[in-house]
């Protein structure tokens, strides 16, 4: 097949543009995090001072801990519940399955701010105190649908008799799920968990509606500091650490994946 040269050049150019515009803020963040002065941009002074100061920024450390706790808890709970719900949805007949998925996809499509308002309203209605529990519930709420969306296609790929085959060989329903269904869909579960974790630590808007006094996750803390004009480069240092770490992990993961593929032939 003849290559469409004009088309592929355009694709390459646009791809470069994409990486540039998406990575520019990341580069700026990293640059600020290693520049010695907060206000003087005449000449570059390399420093790692801001990285050391993360530990001294007690408020930031607390917010990081909250963010991680929420992300880990929400991911774990969403993955377990989402898998169970996905199995339930999968066993429905087509018509009801579509109905359930329409409902499931509401939080996915819903703009974060509307989701934030909705949760704000209902938690207020039940007179719950805002803080850790409401933020956790909110994060479970918007990560669950993603787990379900990533588990469901894996369930559809299974031999429809797999569950019955396990029962046939003497497994109870619970044993059949744990020993047969879950091992066969674990790729979908892992993918769902990764998405859930990413969504959770990245979220600002929904968390913002769950805020209460000085209880903050990283996003809401930075936003509140912005309002008070108290942004110090420690925040940028922390953020750069996260980016470099995830990028490293991703490349490592890619490597090990490839060697695995090679070994298997």
């Amino acid at each position: 097949m003849k290559k469409n040269l004009y088309g592929s050049t355009l694709q390459v150019v646009l791809t470069i543009f994409t990486f540039a515009i998406v990575y520019l803020p990341i580069l700026v963040i990293i640059l600020i995090s290693i520049h010695g002065s907060q206000y003087n941009y005449d000449s570059f002074k390399l420093t790692f001072r801001w990285y050391q100061e993360i530990i001294n920024d007690q408020q930031l450390v607390d917010a990081i801990i909250v963010t991680l706790q929420i992300a880990l808890l929400a991911t774990t709970i969403s993955t377990i519940l989402g898998t169970a719900f996905a199995i339930g949805i999968h066993s429905l007949k087509k018509k009801n399955r579509v109905r359930m998925m329409v409902l499931n996809n509401v939080p996915v499509v819903n703009p974060d701010i509307v989701t934030g308002i909705m949760l704000f309203i209902i938690f207020r209605f039940f007179r719950m105190t805002f803080g850790f529990p409401t933020m956790l519930l909110a994060h479970i709420f918007f990560t669950l649908p993603f787990v379900i969306l990533s588990v469901l296609p894996k369930l559809k790929q299974l031999d429809p008799n797999l569950f019955d085959a396990a029962l046939d060989l003497g497994a109870t329903k619970f044993q059949a799920i744990v020993r047969v269904i879950i091992p066969s869909i674990k790729i979908g579960m892992i993918a769902g968990a990764l998405i859930a974790f990413t969504m959770s630590i990245d979220d600002f808007i929904i968390s913002y509606f769950m805020k209460q006094g000085e209880f903050h996750n990283v996003s809401t803390l930075i936003y509140s500091r912005l309002a008070k004009r108290q942004i110090s480069p420690t925040v940028f240092a922390y953020n750069s650490l996260v980016v470099v770490l995830t990028m490293g992990l991703m490349i490592l993961f890619n490597r090990s994946n490839q060697t695995q593929k090679k070994v298997r032939g």
């Binding site: 990575y23 990341i26 600020i32 520049h35 005449d42 600002f204 990283v218 953020n239 996260v242 995830t246």
Partner: peptide, 27 residues
């Protein structure tokens, strides 16, 4: 996906920096 792992608010501040007259870009 990596940039999404970077906090959204921090990325917004980064753009704010880029568009301000006095910024790291002065370097």
């Amino acid at each position: 996906i990596v940039p999404i792992w970077s906090n959204m608010i921090v990325r917004i501040i980064a753009w704010e920096n880029v568009f301000k007259p006095v910024s790291i870009l002065n370097l």
